[in-house]
């Protein structure tokens, strides 16, 4: 068994929190540049240019892209030949989030109870999704998730008769109803299949895909392309001011499901699909 000390995990998580919040992905920047050419609305073009200008300021001054530096969602992939020493891995991750959010001047956006709503003042606890993988490495992905776009997300238990068209109609409807709230242009993660809760995790994982990547299954690649076109035809445009570019990318993740079910989850993200990974 390969040993990894929790101290290393804490340091890396802190660093990932800061980098994910301050550095806009090159894939996003590339897609926004292309979108400026396609956008017909003058206001829309202006918004897209501001997004690029903002990313430059954030990178040069190491300040967050957005004031909502999110709840820290952490995907942990544990190699089965790894032994974590020196402490508990969940505590180490939370310590990393605490350190990153305090030292990186990131906003603390977590309340300790849904009703009592007292700020925890260090952005913990993180939401941790853990899976066991082959090998002797640990992969950690930190994905800060903002509240505005998360509030527009939804899980729907459709039934098999809805089929492909029913699912597409539902996704487009959800985006239409979200309007300007999730700060378009958005990225849409769609989780289809599994169970009620698993569809939501699939939708969140879908948001980790690189913009510009094509789904390996041509059936879903076509569905993503079609959804992107239908969403952009809604006319919502950058920031909802009207325009051609409402969505930068649609990503679908699927999983086997029950004979009676067709769960669909739509997880909406703003342009800044913030995530950074490291393999230890």
């Amino acid at each position: 068994m390969r040993e990894i000390n929790v101290k290393e995990i804490t340091e890396k998580v802190a660093q990932l929190c800061i980098e994910a919040n301050c550095l806009l992905g090159e894939d996003v920047k590339k897609r926004v540049k292309e979108a400026i050419e396609k956008e017909e609305s003058p206001l829309g073009k202006e918004v897209l240019k501001q997004i690029l200008e903002n990313a430059e300021i954030a990178r040069n001054e190491m300040v967050p892209i957005c004031q909502d530096t999110g709840l820290a969602v952490v995907f942990l992939e544990m190699g089965e030949e790894v032994k974590v020493v020196g402490g508990n891995i969940y505590e180490a991750i939370n310590e990393g989030v605490r350190k990153g959010y305090i030292e990186g001047y990131l906003r603390k956006s977590v309340v300790s109870d849904p009703f009592r709503r007292k700020n925890t003042n260090d952005n913990t606890p993180a939401i941790i999704h853990c899976s066991i993988t082959k090998g002797d490495k640990i992969k950690i992905t930190v994905m800060p998730k903002g509240g505005g776009s998360e509030n527009m997300s939804e899980v729907k238990m459709l039934t098999p008769a809805f089929g492909v068209e029913g699912v597409k109609d539902y996704v487009v409807k959800r985006v239409k109803e979200s309007g300007a709230n999730p700060c378009p242009p958005i990225v849409v993660g769609v989780g289809i299949g599994g169970t009620f809760e698993y569809a939501a995790i699939l939708a969140k994982k879908a948001l980790l895909r690189e913009i510009g990547s094509i789904h390996p299954d041509p059936f879903y690649a076509e569905m993503e392309k079609d959804l992107l076109e239908r969403i952009n035809n809604l006319g919502i445009g950058p920031q909802g001011f009207g325009g051609r570019i409402t969505c930068l990318a649609v990503f679908i993740e699927v999983f086997p499901c029950h004979i009676a079910s067709l769960p669909v989850a739509v997880n909406i993200n703003c342009h800044a699909v913030r995530h950074k990974s490291i393999i230890i």
């Binding site: 997004i51 200008e53 300021i57 300040v63 957005c66 909502d68």
Partner: peptide, 13 residues
């Protein structure tokens, strides 16, 4: 008024 969401570093300036 709408301010552009998600360009908070620019707004900060």
């Amino acid at each position: 008024f709408g301010a552009v969401g998600g360009v908070a570093a620019l707004t900060m300036k």
